[in-house]
């Protein structure tokens, strides 16, 4: 598969570039924030500054990285499953479904307390994904691309309309929901890292294990089942994983659009279509994008912070547009 695909860059150049970008985004994310007197050396200092970097900035950087991993992988899985380059958690309505699940938990605290907000987000993501996939005709055995995208747009629009309805409710409630829907990680701590990290790590391992199945999906469903991988099983596991990865990300940060769409594209553009390489690359690329966006969110309008979701959209949307306009046949 690799041999037939001409890569635009040398492997060595890509590794150096990836390493540089990664270091820069970690540094940027760690060195920005409400205080200007924090240095990297404070990481090992037993002072207030040390506490700032250990208790506040490091978990935030890690949360950003985990979000990038989750959203990137979720997008990669969806694009492979549907053989549609436009698939991503936000375009298939899965992000918005997760946000709706969360919003229901916030508006009805009894439901939120009973089920828990994180499961509610995952359930919302699953239900939205299920609806989009049904509209696309998955259960009749064949995915119609156009119906998939239109179905996703419809489901997403419905879910975000319901979320937006909550803005008209009481001020305090509206502000809570608004904070979520913008994609905000301005006050995360270690316990957020704990809940996310498990999913990011597990998700990466599981997706890596599925990489071969995802490669087969790219050949088409008939060929995939001819080669011994039941596409329905791949579809089911993949959809479930994608919903869980998205749900956990939305629970912590709110629906961040474009990360799931752009990162797999960027990686495919640089590294070719083999999922055994794409899975780790997408995880790393997603982490870098979100950490860089986190740095920008703290720095651009300092001292008031931008929601990280807004910054990701500011980076992601132009890249996606560029790809759409200038790629030859890839999209």
């Amino acid at each position: 598969m690799n041999a037939r695909h001409r890569l635009p860059f040398q492997a060595g150049a890509i590794s150096v570039l990836a390493f540089g970008v990664c270091i820069l985004s970690v540094y940027g994310s760690l060195m920005t924030g409400g205080r200007s007197d924090i240095r990297l050396s404070d990481l090992f200092a037993a002072s207030t500054n040390g506490a700032v970097i250990l208790d506040i900035r490091l978990p935030r950087t890690l949360v950003a990285a985990c979000l990038g991993v989750n959203l990137g992988l979720s997008g990669l899985i969806l694009q492979a499953l549907t053989r549609n380059p436009l698939s991503s958690p936000s375009i298939l309505g899965i992000n918005q479904g997760a946000a709706l699940g969360l919003t229901i938990g916030v508006i009805f605290p009894s439901v939120g307390a009973l089920v828990g907000l994180m499961p509610l987000a995952a359930i919302g993501a699953l239900v939205a994904g299920f609806m989009t996939f049904s509209i696309a005709g998955v259960f009749t055995g064949r995915i119609v691309s156009l119906r998939l995208i239109l179905g996703g747009v419809a489901v997403g629009a419905f879910a975000s309309a319901m979320v937006r309805f909550s803005f008209t409710l009481e001020d305090d409630l509206a502000r809570q929901v608004l904070r979520w829907t913008l994609g905000n990680i301005s006050d995360v701590r270690w316990h957020h890292v704990q809940s996310l990290f498990v999913w990011s790590l597990g998700g990466t391992v599981a997706t890596l294990a599925m990489a071969h199945r995802l490669n087969l999906m790219a050949l088409g469903e008939a060929q995939a089942s001819g080669l011994g991988a039941d596409p329905r099983l791949t579809l089911m596991i993949g959809a479930l994983m994608s919903a869980c990865l998205t749900g956990t990300a939305v629970f912590v940060a709110g629906p961040i659009a474009f990360a799931g769409l752009v990162v797999p594209h960027m990686c495919r553009f640089c590294l070719g279509p083999d999922h055994r390489i794409l899975v780790p690359a997408t995880a790393l690329g997603g982490a870098c994008l979100l950490m860089a966006a986190d740095a920008a969110s703290k720095w651009l309008t300092s001292p008031v912070e931008l929601p990280v979701g807004v910054v990701v959209a500011m980076i992601g949307a132009p890249y996606f547009l560029y790809q759409t306009l200038f790629s030859k046949g890839a999209i």
Binding site: G33, G34, R35, T48, V52, I56, S186, D187, P303, V304, E305
Partner: peptide, 15 residues
Amino acid sequence: YETNYVPTTLEQLSV
């Protein structure tokens, strides 16, 4: 909500 009622993180509060 930027001038009068300023959203504040712990780090900003410490400033």
